[in-house]
Structure formats: C-alpha cells, structure tokens
C-alpha cells in the first residue's frame, strides 16, 4: 500500500471530531500494510491546526490560500485531483458529512475512482479495499469491494473512536496552484439556526418521540407524559420535518447533541444520525414495537410494545406511585 490521504474537515477555525476519527482508522489500516497516513489540510490561515495533526499523521500536506477560506467542494475537488495525481495514494478518506457529501461523489467521478459512502469498517484486500456500510437505515450491513486504487471512502461520523497518537509528521506546504480558481459556485455565508425557546441540551430528563407517534393528534399524549415526569419533549428528524415540533428540539447529527440524565425514546428506530445525538445520556430507555430496532443497541432499558398502549398505562402507574 502507498499512502492514505485523510482530508481534514474543519469549520470556523476548529478541526471537526470526525477528522481524528478518520486519522485513527487510517493509522490502523496503514500500519500493518506499511502504508503512511497523510493528513490533507486545505485552509486559509489554519497554521494553528498543524501541531494537532502532526501528532496524528506521518505527514501533513498543507495547502493554504484564499480559495480555501470557506469550504467549497469545487476548490477542494480540483486540488485533490491534482494532489492524488502527484501522490498516488491507495485511498482517500473523506468524512461522510455535509461537506464530505458535497465533495466525495463528484471527486470520485473526477478521479474515475470507486467510492463507498457511509463506511463503518474497512480493510485492505489483496487488491483494493473491502468496505462495510449500513443499508436500510441500519437494518442491514453491506460489504463492498473496491478493486481499484485510489479508493474514495466516505467515513461515517462518530463511528470510529479517536485515539491519541504521538507521531511527529512533517508538514509539507503544497501549492494547489491556479486549478482552484474560477468555479461556478460561491460561498455566501454560514448561518446558525437560532434557538428561540427550549434548549434541550440543558434538560435533565428528555422524552424523544419518533415517527412511531404516527399522527399529530397523538402529540398531547406524549406532551402530557413529558410534563408529568418533568421532562422536555424532543424528537427525531421526521417529527420535526412534519412540523409537529420545532427544529431546535431535534436530536441528532443535524440537530442537537444532548447528554441528559435520562432519555426516553418513544417510537424511534435508532438511525445512526439520531444515536449520534443522544448516546451520551446517562440512562436510555426505549419503547419500540420492533424488537430488532437499532435503538435497543444503545438503550439500557427496553420495552417492545406499542407506545400508544404503554404510555397511557404508564401514566396511571406513575400517578399511583406519586401519591
């Protein structure tokens, strides 16, 4: 194996966690095959990020310049095509994030490379790589083989555990040159979705509701239940998409990350985007009518049943206990 390039994902001056997750995974992949891990940092004035990367990689390729001031898949893609042609890596790792999804597929096309997105495990095969990923919202795993190099692998966030390392990778300052000028897209701004009322990150007890709630008319049931146990009501994405609860109470990768003492998941399947936002809760209780729902893999306590039956009975039992 030659090298594994890991694209450093950063936003607003900070390296995102997924970068260190990818670097850890890349070291495990490269070490037995004698490959090198190269962190690729594109940015404008990101020198402060270098030491943190040097300890994690055999080399840090740093391209600086105004073309990389804000994330823009076009500049990143053109620069990566040039870099890959020069360094001939065995694999390019990119986060399976909103940035990475804008970049990975078109990069793979531009490189005429095999791509596997949302990768949760990968190993070196005799030729190329073997990559596992989820399908059907986590109900299945699919193993893919990428026979050609470089393989472009988009790595699921919060999947690999980042580990410390004590390498001292050399910094290579690299010029992308004029390939990065003249794109058809333009960055305008980064907006933060405002929190207007409820801050679910501050709550001690959170009741999370999912698509299992079925209809808007079932909302009062869980609203009252939450109130009775002193909990704040939160939700999975589909409930927010449907407009039943505001965006600011969405738990998950594109919502909030919460660490309450108690999280009660009602009718939530446990897609990884949801789990990413609540797995840090001290105690997780899940009610789901599907015994195979992935939510049970992170729950501490579980009930397999219809939530519309369980909650009314539960409310009665709670009233009995309270009096």
């Amino acid at each position: 194996m030659s090298s594994i390039l890991v694209l450093v994902e950063h936003r607003q001056g900070a390296i995102r966690d997924v970068t260190f997750e990818m670097l850890t995974a890349a070291r495990k992949l490269a070490a037995p095959a004698g490959g090198k891990v190269e962190a690729v940092l594109f940015g404008d004035g990101c020198d402060a990020m270098l030491p943190g990367l040097q300890s994690q990689a055999d080399r840090v390729v740093y391209a600086a310049g105004p073309a990389f001031k804000d994330f823009n898949y076009e500049s990143y893609q053109k620069a990566l095509v040039k870099l890959v042609a020069e360094r001939k890596p065995s694999a390019v790792l990119i986060a399976n994030s909103a940035f990475g999804t804008d970049l990975g597929p078109s990069l793979a096309v531009a490189l005429n490379a095999g791509l596997v997105s949302d990768a949760v495990a990968f190993t070196k095969a005799d030729s190329g790589f073997s990559v596992s990923r989820g399908m059907y919202a986590g109900k299945l795993v699919a193993d893919w083989s990428v026979g050609s190099e470089p393989a472009v692998i988009m790595v699921r966030q919060s999947n690999f555990k980042p580990e410390p390392a004590s390498l001292s990778g050399e910094v290579v300052r690299w010029e992308a040159g004029d390939v990065v000028s003249g794109g058809k897209t333009k960055f305008l701004s980064l907006e933060e979705v405002p929190t207007t009322g409820i801050d679910i990150t501050k709550a001690t007890i959170v009741v999370g509701i999912g698509r299992g709630i079925k209809e808007a008319k079932n909302m009062p049931l869980v609203q009252e239940f939450a109130k009775e146990i002193g909990a704040v009501l939160a939700a999975s994405r589909p409930v927010v998409d449907a407009g039943w609860l505001p965006k600011e109470v969405q738990v998950g990768s594109s919502g909030k990350t919460i660490k309450p003492k108690l999280y009660i998941a009602l009718g939530i399947s446990g897609a990884f985007q949801h789990i990413a936002g609540m797995k840090g809760a001290d105690t997780i209780i899940a009610v789901n009518k599907d015994p195979k729902a992935p939510i049970f893999s992170v729950a501490h306590y579980g009930i397999v049943d219809d939530l519309h039956k369980v909650i009314p009975v539960l409310r009665t039992k709670i009233k009995e206990l309270a009096s």
Binding site: G147, F296, S297, H300
Partner: peptide, 28 residues
C-alpha cells in the same frame, strides 16, 4: 467501480435490560 459482495443483518448487540410481560406489567 465497486462490487457488492454481500448484505447481512447485523447482530444487534443489546445490553439493554428488557422489561417483559403484559403491557400492564411492563408499564409497572
């Protein structure tokens, strides 16, 4: 450029303590 090798149902390794019984018992 990539080949699907196989799909399979993942082992749900659940450490969860499951409450069993009737709805009433589970709720209790």
């Amino acid at each position: 450029r990539t080949q699907l090798v196989r799909v399979y149902v993942p082992q749900v390794v659940s450490a969860a303590q499951m409450f069993e019984g009737t709805t009433d018992e589970k709720a209790t």
